[in-house]
């Protein structure tokens, strides 16, 4: 009986996860090493990968900063009532429930060229939708819960006694944060960072709607894969996808490592 269950588990993994991965690897070698390199060094591929890199860096930095702060407020702040905290707490999860396409649509509706805010920004020479700022906002929206959800349980678990002891001599300060809070939430934050990087690198729906997918301008790696598939340029799509998949596997290993450290702590 035990053998049967283990075999079944292996079968599911093989069919659902391992076979597709292997297929991506073999697919990008369909035209040999040269084909792979050629697809990757196309100007649009380089540009798309660069865009994705920029978005990941900016989004991860902002999301980490605001996510950690918000988590601390939601767990510790007395100036928020209990009811208010509960309400905010459930709002944090909303982006998980929103389809990425709808997330993108929201930003187009709010900041698009036909809206008040959109025309205002356009008048001062700042394009939001169909440009980088919109793509960053969309990715920020989608990745928002990641950091908060990783840090909050850790904060709740460690309790506030240590911090209170440390800050009896003064208000909650940077000193308390760096010397008392940070060491205990560190691995939670790192785990959240890895999740955010993975999600912002892989974001597709929201970015596709907001960016307009303009080649060599607002195209990211994932939207380039989509365009290549639509143009039946499968080998090229494969090569870019392989790069993304390789990074994802690297992130997965990082996630494992961070998780282990988190548990040790």
């Amino acid at each position: 009986m035990k053998k049967l269950w283990i075999t079944l588990t292996y079968a599911v993994f093989l069919v659902l996860l391992i076979a597709p991965l292997v297929r991506i690897f073999s697919g990008s070698w369909a035209e040999g090493w040269d084909g792979f390199i050629e697809a990757l060094t196309r100007p649009q591929s380089l540009h798309a990968l660069w865009m994705t890199f920029l978005i990941v860096i900016i989004v991860t930095a902002l999301n980490t900063l605001f996510g950690v702060m918000l988590a601390i407020y939601l767990v510790r702040a007395d100036w928020l009532g209990r009811r208010m905290k509960q309400l905010l707490n459930s709002i944090v999860d909303l982006p998980f429930a929103v389809s990425p396409v709808i997330g993108g649509l929201m930003i187009v509706l709010l900041l698009g060229p036909n809206t008040i805010i959109g025309t205002f920004f356009e008048d001062i020479g700042f394009k939001v939708v169909y440009a980088m700022p919109g793509m960053i906002i969309a990715t920020l929206f989608v990745t928002f819960p990641m950091m908060v959800r990783e840090v909050m349980p850790v904060l709740q678990e460690i309790g506030s006694q240590q911090e209170e002891a440390a800050s009896t001599l003064g208000a909650y300060s940077w000193y308390t944060f760096w010397h008392v809070t940070w060491p205990s939430i560190r691995w939670g934050v790192i785990y959240g960072v890895v999740l955010t990087v993975a999600r912002s690198m892989g974001e597709f729906g929201a970015v596709l709607v907001v960016s307009g997918n303009i080649i060599n301008k607002t195209q990211t790696a994932t939207t380039l894969v989509y365009q290549d598939v639509e143009n039946f340029n499968i080998v090229a799509a494969n090569s870019v996808a392989l790069v993304l998949a390789a990074i994802s596997i690297g992130l997965l290993l990082l996630m494992e490592w961070a998780k282990k450290r988190k548990e040790v702590h």
């Binding site: 894969v225 494969n238 997965l252």
Partner: peptide, 12 residues
């Protein structure tokens, strides 16, 4: 893996 992998790559 499906969490870490871009969904477009999954579709491909």
């Amino acid at each position: 893996l499906p969490f870490a992998l871009p969904t477009a790559v999954g579709g491909l």
